[in-house]
Design a protein around this nucleic acid. Structure first.
Lengths: 68, 68
DNA sequence: TGTTTTTATACCCGTTATGGTATAATTTAT
DNA sequence: ATAAATTATACCATAACGGGTATAAAAACA
């Protein structure tokens, strides 16, 4: 389904972090981290990259996944 | 450098489309397509995906490129 | 079971992305 | 070279993202 939100949540948990901790380290608001993990589609690119950067990742074009 | 903007521009040109044509097919504004190809960092995720979808792509987490 | 921690939802509000339009700059073609 | 097509830049208006806060729900734990 939504690989991005799942990716963030899995990475965060595998590092033993809470949402507030992730938001603090990424320099974003807590609300944003929650929207991200909830699969909100209208997020801003730079904010998402702030979070992914903590994991050594960033947003880039990938082949479309099958929709659900 | 900015793989996303380069990706869009290359795909668009390889399909022989102009920016207005791409915007029209993607259902976004022309200004957005221009911002995208210019490497604007604060774009909205869903809008970028509207464009990438035309090429069978979408945004997803990828390993970070060297910033240089 | 009850308590604590974590996550989800709801609200207000400042900031800003987007779309549209117009104009300038650049590229391409003749 | 000039002319046409394409792309870049600038401005305005509206919608909505993100931050903050408070509360509710859920999960984790003893």
């Amino acid at each position: 389904m939504n690989t991005l939100s799942e990716f963030v949540r899995n990475r965060r948990k595998s590092l033993g972090m809470t949402q507030p901790e992730l938001a603090e380290k990424a320099g974003t608001g807590l609300r944003f981290v929650r929207d991200l993990e909830q699969g909100k589609k209208t997020l801003r690119l730079d904010k998402v990259n702030q979070v992914l950067g903590l994991f050594g990742y960033e947003l880039g074009p990938v082949r479309q996944e099958r929709e659900e």
